[in-house]
Design a protein around this nucleic acid. Structure first.
Lengths: 116, 116
DNA sequence: TTCACGTGTAAGGAAAAAATGACACGTGAA
DNA sequence: TTCACGTGTCATTTTTTCCTTACACGTGAA
């Protein structure tokens, strides 16, 4: 059971990628049909540079993929589409993923001991 | 079916709450047994003020709950435990949640139009 | 009283994320 | 050539998070 899921680090990256209104809307939009950057920017009402950053983040997390294509008019269009990710989050799933966390991120020392 | 899931805003909050190594480890730890703040801080190797902040964030997202109890020695102990949340994330689930997003967060105007 | 251990919060700085604006480059059509 | 539309990046500012330090309060035991 439990698809084994992503590693702890990957999970954090995916969650961080989804934990943003704009990126959530990007995923939602691409869930219906693939789209190219400029068009997507217009539909979402965000600037291209900003959209570009969000797209990179989503793609880095493996939630969307983009590829450059040439339109009939010879223009380079970058089309993005969603990958069919499937994250099932429960406390136990999190517990499992945490075992593969390589960024404990605190100083890794025993503890910051404060009162001694 | 599809539990109907949380609203878009709630989803963003939950995702943001989970998108952090420390908070993920908190959830993982509490998935096994409930625990009180100071003890949890020692186990995770983080300072109490820091843990406190993370706990608040998790509780605000509805992923954990805490209640103050009096120990036999009369000390006030705040015990936290995980709620049995169950988030199923797919592109279509995101698309559904986005419909209830109240923080489009961009200026809400049509678009920043840049070249015209 | 003092110490150990529990609770909590407020102030301030460092670091990361989000957002904007100004660029540069390429192509087809007027 | 110039315009419209596509691609991309870099530099900078604004905003959020994250984290530490320091403090305050309460109780039981030495």
């Amino acid at each position: 059971m439990s698809v084994g899921g992503p590693t702890g680090d990957d999970l954090v990256e995916m969650l961080a990628a989804l934990a943003n209104p704009i990126r959530l809307r990007i995923v939602a939009t691409l869930a219906g049909r693939r789209d190219y950057v400029s068009q997507l920017a217009r539909e979402l009402g965000v600037s291209r540079p900003l959209l570009h950053m969000h797209l990179r983040r989503l793609e880095a997390a493996g939630l969307i993929t983009g590829r450059l294509e040439l339109s009939d008019e010879g223009k380079a269009m970058k089309y993005y589409e969603v990958t069919d990710f499937d994250l099932h989050l429960t406390a136990s799933a999190v517990a499992e993923a945490v075992q593969t966390l390589t960024r404990p991120d605190p100083g890794k020392g025993p503890a910051p001991k404060e009162s001694t």
